[in-house]
Design a binder for these strands. Structure first.
Lengths: 232, 232
DNA sequence: TGATTGCTGATTGTTGACAAAAATATGGTT
DNA sequence: AACCATATTTTTGTCAACAATCAGCAATCA
């Protein structure tokens, strides 16, 4: 269920906004590869809108990190390096830790009353997918889990930043590696976070969140490196 | 032969970029008050450029948080509420803590060799300003201190986010309250951070950084609230 | 041969004009 | 005077055309 109740920053009632979303989709889903150039004329032609509209869409995407702008040369899909991924993980971890701590605090204060049950339900559902060979539902539930905590923190700006980071990391992931490794381990970590949030223990929640991201990075790097050495 | 190339960092070789910087300056320096509307025609007239150029500048500023875009209504200088300031502080603290921890790690690994001496020099200079009634040099040194740590962390994305947050908080600060309160206390906290970074103790650095921001928020809120109740 | 200079086609930067939507003014009714 | 529907004005959204800049290639010269 997508609540898309007009993200205050970017309304999609406008044509440029629509184009923006479409370009973003093309990048995230891989229609446009890393490093590839965004030709304004070609895009406007393909979408049946004016070049100025495409231009506006590209400009509004630039600051999100998905696109690099070079004066007089054009826009390019950002090429995320491995060392950059480490930086992004670091950032994501810091924001996620903040969100979990804040969620715990708000549970304690009674501001996010139904968060604990929602988290528990998510974990239960995830347990159900453990045997499945298809990891798509794990994928969805994993995103939902993090989303609920970011939402529960009551800090919209933090959520916006987090979403941007995830989008950009997704760029790199497309090089072929799945995140669905060690689902069982990841699920264990989710349980610890959920418990800490449910009991309102901010410090424990922060620690568990940090640990979760650090472990995730480690799992990720292990695969990425072995893949890097395998592919020329 | 070295020709002064104007396109070194984020190029302002383009007209729209120039306009963007000018609008940002107007907002940060208070020529445009919070909540005020940005009239495209008026701005383009005043600056002697086309409306499209101004439009492009505004769009590229929108994601930074300084400006709110409303479809078919225009762009407005973001009005930062007190509860939002709390959220921004929270975020800033998380990123600053990450930066300090990373700086400490990099000192330990020998990647940021001259950071400790630079921090020590900054603190020394700041001690010299303790008696001054003019707080402008404290202001400058305070920014420098945080900048060095963000730079030392080797995470450019984190620095960009941090800078954006500070800019947005600046928006609120303009309501008349100075941050130069309890300089001595703040300086003490800087010393703790500096020591932790110098000895390469990541955990201590993170804790000290978090503490510094939390205390800063507390000091800030105390003044803001008393001011809020004083001014109608 | 190798590097520099001057063209050429393509792409981006900028502009002014037109269309659509919101804000504001107008006028009649109760 | 207050209220609602409608006309007018202002402002934003979109477009197509013009100008500046760049990558690539051919011609020139050391």
């Amino acid at each position: 269920m997508t609540i898309t109740a007009r993200t205050i920053g970017q309304g999609r009632a406008t044509l440029a906004g629509e184009v923006r979303d479409e370009i973003e989709r093309m990048i995230v889903e891989g229609d446009l590869g890393a490093g590839e150039k965004l030709n304004e004329l070609a895009l406007s032609d393909a979408m049946g809108v004016s070049r100025g509209t495409v231009r506006e869409a590209i400009r509004s995407l630039a600051d999100s990190g998905l696109i690099d702008l070079i004066t007089n040369r054009g826009a390019f899909v950002h090429e995320t390096t491995l060392s950059e991924v480490r930086n992004l993980y670091e950032l994501r971890g810091a924001i996620f830790a903040l969100a979990c701590a804040a969620s715990a605090r708000r549970v304690r204060e009674g501001a996010a009353r139904d968060l604990p049950t929602a988290l528990a339900r998510n974990i239960e559902e995830m347990e159900g997918t453990l045997g499945d060979s298809d990891t798509s539902s794990y994928y969805r539930l994993n995103i939902e889990f993090h989303d609920m905590l970011l939402e529960g923190a009551g800090n919209p700006r933090a959520k916006a930043m987090y979403d941007n980071l995830v989008k950009e990391m997704h760029l790199f992931r497309r090089r072929g590696l799945s995140v669905a490794t060690n689902i069982a381990r990841s699920l264990d970590e989710h349980r610890v976070i959920s418990d800490a949030v449910a009991t309102g223990d901010s410090e424990a929640a922060r620690k568990a969140a940090e640990h979760h991201i650090v472990e995730g990075l480690a799992r990720y790097m292990k695969i990425a490196e072995s893949q890097d050495s395998a592919t020329p």
